[in-house]
Design a protein around this nucleic acid. Structure first.
Lengths: 125, 125, 125, 125
DNA sequence: GTGGTCTAGACCACG
DNA sequence: GTGGTCTAGACCACT
């Protein structure tokens, strides 16, 4: 249950929280049914506002990663393989987009990018 | 001198301008010493605020792509292209690596990645 | 005396309790004068807090479905069933009307509506 | 552009706002591309907090009804028939659910409900 | 104790 | 001017 917040990152705090929870759920560190800290508790331990944590939890719930009930707290939702697959493809797409954006600015060809991609893919993991 | 701006892109307008100038400079379409449009002229032709173009030109100057002199206008600066190109390629590679890493754990094939890459590359800038 | 509690329902637990008691009273499973479980007994068997059951019993008493006396317990009250039944049917009709109205403008067929209705009706309370 | 909010309704204010915008967009009162009031302006005219309006607009954007851009404002999104169909089916389902809930409590049979539903559906519109 | 909603401020990036 | 993020309070319903 280690969430790390950086004020220097150019990612909003609530997104730093959601992405770390998603990672912990996807890699099995958090299992379905596990309880996660109350909004107030997490807000206190991270020294951020309750509202910020609330926004993070709201997003996690909307994306199907957790379930929250008033008066009971928040729990890791039953895990859904399709959800994970979608989320990971989304992340991979983000990186590809970023690579393409840079390539455009500095005039790197699609052929060159594709070649690099294949190279990395074939490398020993 | 074709700059295209999109209001639907989730990139700020000033960044759409800078990245397109950078690309034109990197691929030789704009040579060192060439003059670029005045802020007012460009703002008018793009139907955006002068302030927005001003911000773009400021950033281009800060990054060493252009030089502007009051009363004379803005000109493409002498470039150290190779340095810039190397740096950019390094960044693009990092993103490709990250994408590959995620793709491996979630069983996304190289073919799928390549397809996505081409898709993003062909999209309007 | 079978009360079923679901933590996934978006209905508060105390309301799940009251509505199931109301249903049992309306369909005659519980008759006027019958005793119902003590708060503590019910709370224990449902694995919920006594406070939650207390709130449910309070609401049932307020609505005239049960009578509770300190030291004796709670009993089903004499009912004016017909009045209640009419009022409830009127409310149900209103919702059906509203659903039909929406269905008409968006071309949802009667068959589809009937199917949905049956689906909801069969769901666990 | 008439939004009405009631503090007595048991619906949250932000939901009153979203549902009224959805209705105006679905019945054509607001067309694709139309601008809607800025968050601050609407908040002021409704005498509610900016945050409350923001939450409403965020939900509308997430559900694809509007598009918002920093510095430009919010606009009705290109309309999507499937989206509307889904939204209206969702609304119809809500009413059916409510009817079923009441029916259960007061022991109205599924057959009776189905009969009423058919009756309303066949009525002259 | 829990989460859900709301307020009245604030600073930031963008146009 | 616009929306996006964040804070530090508050009250409510629910367990």
């Amino acid at each position: 249950m280690d969430i790390i917040i950086s004020n220097n990152a150019n990612k909003p705090i609530y997104e730093q929280i959601t992405s770390q929870f998603k990672a912990m759920i996807m890699n099995g560190e958090l299992q379905a049914g596990d309880s996660i800290p109350s909004m107030r508790a997490l807000a206190k331990s991270l020294h951020v506002s309750v509202i910020t944590v609330q926004k993070a939890y709201e997003d996690l719930q909307r994306d199907g990663f957790i379930e929250t009930t008033v008066g009971r707290g928040s729990f890791v939702a039953a895990q859904n393989r399709e959800l994970f697959q979608e989320e990971q493809q989304r992340q991979a797409e983000e990186h590809l987009q970023a690579a393409v954006e840079i390539a455009r600015v500095s005039n790197i060809s699609l052929a060159k990018l594709t070649e690099l991609l294949a190279l990395f893919y074939e490398e020993e993991p």
